[in-house]
Design a binder for these strands. Sequence first.
DNA 1: TATGCCGGTTGGAAAATCAAACTCACGCAT
DNA 2: ATGCGTGAGTTTGATTTTCCAACCGGCATA
Lengths: 171, 171
Amino acid sequence: MTTVGTPRIDPTALPGRPCSAAAALELVGDRWSLLAVREVMFGNHRFSEIARNTGAPRDRLAARLKVLVEAGVLERREYQQSPPRSDYHLTPAGRALAPVLEALVRWGDEWAVQSPPITLLHHDHQLQPNWTCAECGEPVRSRDVHRRMNVPGWDLSGPVPGGAADQDRRD
Amino acid sequence: MTTVGTPRIDPTALPGRPCSAAAALELVGDRWSLLAVREVMFGNHRFSEIARNTGAPRDRLAARLKVLVEAGVLERREYQQSPPRSDYHLTPAGRALAPVLEALVRWGDEWAVQSPPITLLHHDHQLQPNWTCAECGEPVRSRDVHRRMNVPGWDLSGPVPGGAADQDRRD
DNA sequence: TATGCCGGTTGGAAAATCAAACTCACGCAT
DNA sequence: ATGCGTGAGTTTGATTTTCCAACCGGCATA
């Protein structure tokens, strides 16, 4: 059995700014994918459970699960052979989505709903996540965060006129 | 001038499990919204800049910006009156999306692209974010995180048979 | 034989998306 | 005054995606 690494996206092939967020959204940024991952994280591994608990149409869900498996986010396991039945489990890449979902939940709790439908518990108390910088130990405040673009032809304000990303337009 | 709070979604009205992540995705979970927010965070406030740097079709972008403004994520400002010209700025709710985008970037960096197109800097070193629990100070490991559903009729495995969320199906 | 469960697939209608062209109000140069 | 460029969208018509409901196939149970 060959272990297939997650296929990689070339972010410069995406429309707009080359950015890992755009690449990530290309894989999990549709209406149902993250909710499907959420269900698997909650321990609901079977197609019907995921369909019921996300509300996704079955055909869409089947299509997205296929993409997520190809993307290396989920693993499909046959749990019986006759009739053939599969369920879905998180890969390391899938487990790594936990912070994304958690950030989303926290934003939703604060800005999208009246009261949190789900409470996150750490050990036996309520989870109050804190971003710190492992390098310097300080809490991360957004005004201390800066960005640098590593792609020739782009800077933070967009494509640089005459730069590499602009080459197909010069003549 | 009345300050309009962000309108709230009733998560039990959404398809599937009532969950803040689903509510959040209802607002910012389409193909272009988070990328538009990213651009505004990067300091690109104008329609044309956002359109160019996200790659979004102009009509879609116009529609999404409208939704984001109504949702209280962005603020639209007239920066001149004649001809009328507006640009877009982050509200507190918009700024609060930073952790979501950051989590997405970090996931994309690790699992979706070969090499990070954008580097996040904290002060003058590379940002290495760490989740800790403000309550107990420990780093957050996913096996220490548990969830509790607060909505009657639901638990982690789905709608509870006979429970409140199931009432429209009993007869 | 009939019924239900499970993991999907199929068909057709409805909705969302797209790229490109267009609008409208201006400022500026010719 | 004529034309040109800018900026923030809107319109258009074709394409693509999504949705819902029904269906399928293999098996277990009654």
